[in-house]
Nucleic acid binder design. Sequence first.
DNA 1: TGACGTCAAGATCCG
DNA 2: CGGATCTTGACGTCA
Length: 420
Amino acid sequence: MSIGYACMTLGVPNATIKGCILKNFSNEKFVELVLYNLNSLKNILNYNISNDIRLFRISSDIIPFGSNEINKTDWAKIFYNELNEIGNIIRSNKIRVSMHPGQYTVLNSPDSKIVSRAIEDINYHSKFLDSLGIDSSGKIILHIGGVYGDKTSAMIRFSEHYKALDESVKLRLVIENDDKSYNIDDVLDIGTKLNIPVAYDNLHNKLNPYDEKKDDNYWISQCTPLWKKNDGPQKIHYSQQNKLKNNGSHSDSININEFLEFYNKLSGTKPDIMLEVKDKNLSAVKCINCTTNTKIIKNLELEWGKYKYSILEKSPNDYLKIRQLLKDKTAYPVVEFYNIIESALSQKKNFGNSLNAALHVWGYFKETATTQEKLYFNNLLKKAAENSTSFDRIKNFLFKLSLKYKQDYLINSYFFIPAL
DNA sequence: TGACGTCAAGATCCG
DNA sequence: CGGATCTTGACGTCA
């Protein structure tokens, strides 16, 4: 059982995926972007390894316009060395990677042009995983598509188009229930007939249920037999509803109590769990720390090091509470720890607390900073007090200082994540 | 025809 | 001119 997250990281330096718009596409731009993205992917994977995250979804944007006809480059050849190096990192560290074409890749469309684009896109995803030397446990997760007023024939069309795919692509394909059209029963029906593994998505099932009396564990068990040896461990998608947003919007963070309630109800072998959540790797680390057999306080101390200034900024009370909580070096109060973190992060910031946290971080530099840097920092504080600049600018400046003075402890701090 | 969802690139505005 | 903020893109389905 592994727990992972999708596509992008928060608070990891040099780990973003870049793209460009169609009209700016050129071969030179493309080469530049792919080199940049592959380097980011390498950094993400190394981050995952050091945080013991063994499940990761690679962004479909890793190769910009990977399946667009504008893109004539043989990228697998051009970037053979980079791709090979990344593949080695993945394989030697036993990370499981997957990909997930977006909602616009529709294999069952009645429009043959849309179908051929969908096939091109699925082929691109498969080729990317092939280029890393990943075996068939590296999955491509796909939705069934549209209904077009006639679900039965739309499902038949999916089956026919699926059968026409390359064998190597079929080995990777997994189908997933969606939040509007194809419920888990529909998808299990297709999966059983075509022998395709099914990834169960709990939030989609909540929004688009087949039978509300059946719980998550029931459906996950129903999917289990469809995962054969070559497919690797069963996978599911797990997410929670953002209560302030539309149905289907993912929560900012995984609420740990709700997750553990779900997790503890799972019977049999636990599946790989792909989290879909705004705070990405942060929730992955949280859920891993709460389910691991390695119950050592050092892991909580590492987490605390990253969270502490964000907590100080939101709630000095909770800051003190956690310091108290982590005093007993023989204990592992992980759930309590994250409960306080979640509660603190849900608080609103205020000027005094933000200033206090910023000054704590400034403490790392106030001796070593140049006169100019000191002046600039004080000027930013003054402007913030007058409300003529935001604390984000102060944070940006402090982050730049962290990089310049190589303060790794600060560079990895969640304090600098704007959304937090 | 616009909403849906997603994020950053690109465009524009502001001081 | 740099930084902040707004708009667009890229995709297909459905109301």
